[in-house]
Amino acid sequence: MSKPIVATTSLAGCFGCHMSVLDIDDRILELIELVEFNKSPINDIKKFTKKCDIGLIEGGCANSENVHVLKDFREHCKILISLGECAIMGGLPAMRNGIPVRECLEEAYLNGLTVAGNTGKIIPNDPELPMLLDKVYPCHEVVKIDYFLPGCPPRADLIWDALVALITGDEMKLPYEVIKFD
């Protein structure tokens, strides 16, 4: 039997959830025995080369590119998992949800205290750049998400247990200490 294939991505996230994947320590050697990785920042495969079994999504949807990548993952992965608070509820990027996009951009590029060198007073607006969405959206409000692993970041043990349970088909252990929202 061929190994299950895992893909991962970071949308509007900080890569902390990916760090937590690496935090499974030496079990990563076991993981390599258990699964094959496809598109992921961990192995730097940029594009899907085949259909995958499990997709781990870090971060919510803050711009059009995030939505595009998320839909691509939904198309290529049998099971999608929201990994961490940002994927589940928008997380810290969603703290801009109460502020109009224009104000956010002006703060970042014109009025912010640390803005320097923008003499032309330009807010980047090249068609090549992804468009910011009006709000940061949780992933499950954009595509169907099958499982949620909360935490900021989700504890390494939670990620490990979830992956092993999915691959082996065993019931997942959920001790109280591993499910946290922070």
């Binding site: 589940i88 928008g90 109460g98 409000e141 909360p150």
Partner: peptide, 17 residues
């Protein structure tokens, strides 16, 4: 939420201002 094992709420987020 921890006690009830809530992994993610089933309802859409309102993000009130």
């Amino acid at each position: 939420a921890y006690r009830f094992g809530i992994m993610a709420p089933r309802f859409p987020y309102l993000f009130p201002v």
